[in-house]
Amino acid sequence: MGGSKENRHTPGVEHWSLAVKDGKPLEKEWRTEIPIPRGGPHRACVVVDDRLFVIGGQEGDFMAKPGSPIFKCSRRNEVVYGDVYMLDKEMKWKVLPPMPKPNSHIEFSWVIVNNSIIITGGTTEKHPVTKRMILVGEVFQFKLDSMEWSVIGKLPYRIKTTIAGFWDGWLYFTSGQRDRGPDNPQPRKVVGDMWRTKLSL
């Protein structure tokens, strides 16, 4: 869903679907669906009870430098946002309350627990002076019954593009790119650690 155009910078609002059953496609071609209200990559796309939720993301990204022998990229202006949209059973997009802060790089950082969407980490707006990327260390909860956001905890460190999971009462996250330390929210090294905590909602 969405993402960016071929140049990696221009937001894409396209949306396609393909019917699948038991891991096998039921259709020979993808169907074009109603466009997303706001395009961009690095967002969470979650399906719950025949409703599609599109959460966070950004507009803009690194662009490849034409002809670079080492495939070097150049940075462009990026706008991180916390917008939330829901595609309902009538195939109409609805605007829902935004996240507590703009958040991107959360494609795989979510789980569904007891009628809530839980999101771990991400990236938020850049530092206003240095323009450096700032990572997120909060754990967010979106209640599907009341459509309300809250912050329910903090991770051991800030991290983006992490993978979240939930099993037997435990919330897990693993991998991603973590911060430079407690006092520096900029991204540094890619990690393969796995952490877990009890989660009861």
Rank of each mutant, 00 (worst) to 15 (best):
P98C: 08
N184L: 13
I163P: 04
I55F: 03
I36R: 01
F62Q: 10
E148N: 08
M1D: 11
D61P: 01
K89M: 13
D83K: 10
K28I: 00
V48N: 12
K92A: 05
K131V: 00
P37R: 03
R180S: 10
R51D: 13
P128V: 11
C45A: 15
T123K: 15
V139C: 04
P100A: 02
K21D: 00
D179R: 10
L155M: 14
N103A: 02
R38E: 09
P35M: 07
A164F: 04
R180Y: 10
E33H: 03
T123D: 12
I134H: 08
R51N: 15
R132N: 15
T124E: 09
G57W: 03
D193S: 06
V79K: 05
M133V: 14
P69S: 03
I106A: 04
R132G: 14
N77C: 00
G165N: 12
I34F: 02
G57C: 07
I152F: 06
S146V: 10
T120L: 11
E33W: 02
A64C: 09
H127I: 08
E14I: 14
G122V: 00
R180I: 08
W195L: 00
T32C: 07
Q58P: 00
F140S: 01
A19T: 00
I36C: 05
F166L: 04
I119Q: 07
A44Y: 03
V80A: 04
W93H: 04
I106W: 03
P37A: 07
L199R: 04
R132I: 07
P102Q: 07
R76W: 08
E138V: 01
R196Y: 06
F173G: 02
P66K: 13
L171I: 10
M147W: 12
F142I: 06
S68G: 09
D145Y: 05
R178C: 05
K65I: 11
D61V: 01
N7K: 12
P11S: 05
N114K: 14
L18S: 01
D50K: 14
W149E: 01
N77E: 07
C73V: 08
V190C: 06
V95Y: 03
V13Y: 04
K21I: 00
P102I: 01
I163Y: 13
G12F: 12
